[in-house]
Design a protein around this nucleic acid. Sequence first.
DNA 1: ACAATATGCAAGCATTTACTTGCATGTCAA
DNA 2: TTGACATGCAAGTAAATGCTTGCATATTGT
Lengths: 114, 114
Amino acid sequence: MLAYCLQVSDADLLFKALADPGRRKLLDRLHAHDGQTLGELCQHLDMTRQGVTQHLALLEAANLVAVQWRGREKLHFLNPVPMQEIYERWVRKFEKPRLKALHDLKRRLEDGDD
Amino acid sequence: MLAYCLQVSDADLLFKALADPGRRKLLDRLHAHDGQTLGELCQHLDMTRQGVTQHLALLEAANLVAVQWRGREKLHFLNPVPMQEIYERWVRKFEKPRLKALHDLKRRLEDGDD
DNA sequence: ACAATATGCAAGCATTTACTTGCATGTCAA
DNA sequence: TTGACATGCAAGTAAATGCTTGCATATTGT
């Protein structure tokens, strides 16, 4: 597949994107109000616009944020899917077996509902 | 509480610990076989012993690994609890609301069962 | 058309990170 | 008790990271 071209894994991009407090704060702000422009995200954030831009670039690379241009404005949208994948790979896998059955059941219910 | 003394948050230690492929590999190896010594963990890992030691120190700081001394050997054990907390704070929170009810139900069932 | 606005791009710098080498300490076993 | 083994500690280095400043580009509205 495409994996041959990648030098870093998805998990690497994902965890590195989440490893910074500023980037996590950006995710929280998008969670509170999705679709904000770069300028809006810069407000209340103690950093220059370029700093925020670079953080957002990493979040985009990790597929945690999707962008959409509207004229000269860049709108940012949260994508929760990679976080679900963290759950599958790094939380559910490490759970105690006793709890696993419940989670499996839950997952099946959700998949059916989707 | 103790939080006044901390310069970095739990989430910071946690995600930074998980942001390195070598450390994630260590977690996987402990998941496959818990309670390994440092020497055992060094095998099949393309790094010096000191490198592994430093990675394990970060995993300990993030409370993902607990250690127990047996004579001159240091045994390492996996602690899945912080990963559950990732789920609570960074996966469940960002889920679509429609799915949330199911998760809440599941959580209540688990809490009751614990 | 032109000024204001929204963002991109690139270079520079300070700090942190990942990793190594060398030596010290403590434990086991013959 | 002494040599082998398991690990700790500290300093040095190369690369990555976070952030800034300065300038370029594109869009909007008057």
